[in-house]
């Protein structure tokens, strides 16, 4: 049993070491969302009140969305390394080893999850500046929820990375698919105030539920803005389902793209 997990842990470990040795990646994944949060959050908080959350200012409303954006960026950057591994030949060496594809994907997914989680935790240190008072329970719940979200997002990235030959395609997907998913998750504006044609995609967007769950975790000890969006159980359930589906999808893609 232990030896069967050895490939998973060694692939995970390599992702961490590589990240540590290319520290500029850390900066790029966390800086952009932070700038977004400060500029957009501060700028809009003077003019707008999020619908259905009159007691929250915009900087606080936007904070969970920023966390999700950091998770999204890190997870996606981590999966870009799969594309590079493929091009450079490293992955071929892994593919000819007697290791089932699901273990390879699991190692990669856990690697990306760990990196995203590390940055998420860093960002969590800024929660008080958003006016969020964190207790022990809410920190633990938030970290757990971030891990779940990061795992799903990394697998979503892997699902695409295993099909791609160049990193150029990734930028298109980032702009046309991932950013819209994020924009329509309730990160930027609540669905309560959105017109019907926008409310529906928001309701169908799996990230909406991830974000809602994260928001509830952050406000667990205060219970103010936590009432926004879909219910807690439904959110956790859908996010878990999202993790399972993306992981299975990534494994299937990896198996079909053996060459």
């Amino acid at each position: 049993m232990l030896t069967s997990l050895l490939p998973v842990s060694t692939i995970w470990w390599r992702e961490i070491v590589r990240f540590y040795r290319q520290r500029s990646r850390l900066f790029s994944a966390i800086a952009q969302p932070l700038v977004f949060w400060l500029l957009i959050g501060s700028g809009l908080s003077a003019s707008f009140q999020p619908a259905g959350a009159s007691d929250t200012d915009y900087l606080a409303y936007f904070y969970p969305g920023t966390v999700v954006l950091v998770l999204l960026f890190t997870a996606i950057f981590a999966t870009i390394s799969v594309v590079n591994d493929r091009r450079e030949g490293f992955l071929q060496g892994v593919l000819v080893a007697p290791v089932p594809r699901w273990r390879i994907v699991l190692g990669q997914a856990l690697g990306g999850t760990t990196l995203a989680l590390l940055q998420g935790v860093l960002l969590l240190g800024l929660a008080p500046f958003a006016g969020i008072r964190l207790g022990v329970t809410s920190v633990l719940l938030t970290v757990g929820m971030m891990a779940l979200l990061a795992f799903g997002l990394t697998n979503l990235g892997l699902l695409m990375a295993w099909r791609m030959d160049s990193t150029q395609g990734f930028h298109a997907i980032m702009n046309l698919l991932l950013i819209p998913i994020w924009l329509l998750s309730g990160a930027f504006f609540p669905s309560a105030g959105a017109p019907g044609w926008l409310a529906w995609p928001m309701r169908l967007n799996p990230l909406t539920y991830g974000l809602a769950a994260l928001r509830k975790c952050l406000y667990f000890d205060t219970a103010s803005a936590g009432s926004l969006g879909p219910a807690w159980t439904l959110s956790v359930l859908i996010t878990s389902l999202f993790c399972v589906l993306t992981y299975v999808g990534a494994t299937l893609t990896a198996s079909s793209q053996a060459e």
Binding site: V17, G89, F90, V96
Partner: peptide, 14 residues
Amino acid sequence: LGVVFQHPGLDAKL
């Protein structure tokens, strides 16, 4: 099998 590919299979950062 031991396989050596034409493209380098080593991770240069390790």
